[in-house]
């Protein structure tokens, strides 16, 4: 069964997203370092959607679904509009970011470092990021 959460696009809702992830991962017996890494990756993905896709427009929503299948955890992030090409984006190194005082891009780097598979399903009016983590 999938655990589901729908939240308005405000960054003040990020703690609610992390609580949802932590509590459901715990119920699925996914704990410790791997759980914290999944929480971080999904926090980053949601923050990107809220800030960059929706400009923190508190009237629009994103949706999360989470489930476990044997030794894999799957997370789906459904959002309106056009998906950021997270799978092909090449972030700068941390050294380069320090030199040019750049804050952005690290979230995508973290997501790609943590998740074992990322797929994007683009529909006409919405897209779904499908993240998979081996546990």
């Amino acid at each position: 069964m999938k655990a589901r959460l729908k939240v308005y696009c405000s960054i003040s809702n990020l703690p609610q997203i992390r609580d949802f992830m932590r509590s459901n991962l715990r119920e699925m017996e996914v704990v410790g370092k791997v759980s914290e890494q999944i929480v971080l990756a999904i926090d980053e993905a949601c923050a990107n959607a809220i800030i960059h896709q929706h400009s923190c427009d508190g009237c629009s929503c994103i949706e999360l679904a989470l489930y476990r299948d044997n030794e894999q955890v799957f997370i789906e992030l459904k959002d309106t509009g056009k998906a950021f090409p997270i799978d092909t984006f090449e972030p700068k190194s941390t050294e380069e970011r320090i030199k040019c005082h750049q804050r952005g891009g690290m979230g995508v780097f973290l997501i790609k470092s943590i998740m074992d598979n990322i797929q994007i399903e683009q529909k006409k009016d919405y897209y779904i990021f499908r993240f998979m983590k081996n546990i």
Binding site: R97, I98, H101, R103, M106, G107
Partner: peptide
């Protein structure tokens, strides 16, 4: 998160 670390990174060079 990266936003928190980004604060430190953005000031590190200065």
């Amino acid at each position: 998160s990266s936003a928190g670390l980004g604060v430190f990174i953005s000031y590190l060079d200065d």
